[in-house]
Design a protein around this nucleic acid. Structure first.
Length: 329
DNA sequence: GCTAACGTCCGCCAAT
DNA sequence: AGATTGGCGGACGTTA
């Protein structure tokens, strides 16, 4: 079992605990091979959100034993990350743990020196302070999260859900991450920027005016779709559609489509042995060359490279009988 | 990697 | 008065 330690200190907002708890504490999806052992690690007497006393056998020293440490914001975290937490983080990272922060949790990572020379993000309100106080960090306030391999940071609050799902996708593949996302009823995968950076939030609920059009598009991803087609479906001019689309999703229609196609290609690469050419056609990319281009832009790997590394992660050549719940959206 | 055709995006602005 | 719409045009992106 992969141990995920959630670092709780006095004043941690309840909301920030919710994301990692819901994602890593979820029951193991049928399509996953192993899963997480979520451990609440709290400093003694920690009160969550001024109301809830954390009761757990693990204290912050237990972070060292974790494979992944999740650090949510803490009281006054942007100003004075608790020294005890900073020390524990340093030790955990030195022991080989992957460390992820939510919101102002990044300040604790920064204080531990884990972000020096790296890219990172935090809540946009606190980004200037983080950059100011730690000049060696390349702070990007625009993204939802930043994946630096063994150190990950995410923006405020809800971006923590995206970060956690991203981690699940890294560990278990996008299909498992999507299964979790579906269970939590959040948008499967928010991204939009280059590489593993997420640039803009997409509302987690599906009740906005373009939801049906987006769902409609996802059902015919394999077919050629123009912005005009989307506009027709939404009964809007292309101009208005583009306007609403960017306002709602933070991406432009074509970019969103391209990302959806790449994500579907990832699932097919994970779960089928179809050729890149075939997959390109099935996800609505005219040619394999086109798929490769966008795939590289989004994932920083080639389709074949992605397939290989996915197979490597899920190495044991054991038959896995049922893939219930792993169907794509 | 280049190119030619075509599609997309977005500021501007008048119409609703 | 203020918000929303959608046509236009040109820079920019995508495709084969």
């Amino acid at each position: 079992m992969h141990v995920v330690a959630l670092a709780v200190t006095d004043g941690t907002p309840l909301f920030e605990l919710a994301a990692p708890t819901a994602v890593f504490g979820a029951p193991m999806p049928t399509s996953a091979r192993d899963w997480y052992d979520l451990r609440l690690c709290a400093s003694p007497g920690a009160i969550v959100d001024g109301a809830f006393r954390a009761e757990t056998p693990y204290d912050l020293d237990a972070l060292v034993a974790a494979d992944t440490v999740v650090v949510p914001a803490c009281h006054d975290g942007a100003l004075h990350p608790p020294g005890e937490l900073v020390e524990a983080l340093r030790a955990a990272h030195a022991a080989g743990a992957r460390v992820a922060s939510i919101c102002t949790g990044a300040f604790a990572l920064a204080a531990a020196g884990l972000l020096d020379g790296r890219r990172a993000t935090t809540h946009w309100m606190h980004a200037p302070r983080l950059a100011d106080r730690h000049p060696r960090i390349a702070v990007d306030p625009r993204v939802l999260y930043v994946d630096e391999g063994d150190v990950l940071t995410s923006a405020g609050k809800a971006a923590g859900v995206d970060l956690c799902l991203h981690i699940v996708a890294r560990d278990h593949g996008t299909a498992v991450a999507n299964a979790i996302a579906r269970r939590l009823v959040v948008a499967p995968h928010r991204d939009g920027g280059q590489a593993q950076f997420i640039e803009t939030p997409i509302p987690a609920n599906g009740d906005h005016r373009l939801a049906q059009t987006m769902a409609w598009a996802l059902e015919r991803l394999d077919q050629p779709l123009t912005v005009n087609d989307l506009a027709d479906h939404a009964h809007l001019s292309t101009r208005s559609l583009t306007r609403h689309f960017t306002a709602i999703s933070g991406t432009t229609p074509l970019q969103w489509l391209l990302h959806q196609r790449v994500h579907r290609a990832q699932e097919l690469l994970e779960h089928t042995d179809e050729s890149v050419e075939t997959i390109a056609a099935r996800v609505g990319m005219g040619t394999a060359a086109t798929l490769r281009r966008h795939f590289a832009r989004v994932t920083r790997t080639s389709p074949t490279g992605f397939r290989e590394s996915f197979r490597a992660v899920n190495a044991p050549a054991v038959d896995h009988p049922i893939r219930a719940g792993a169907a794509s959206q």
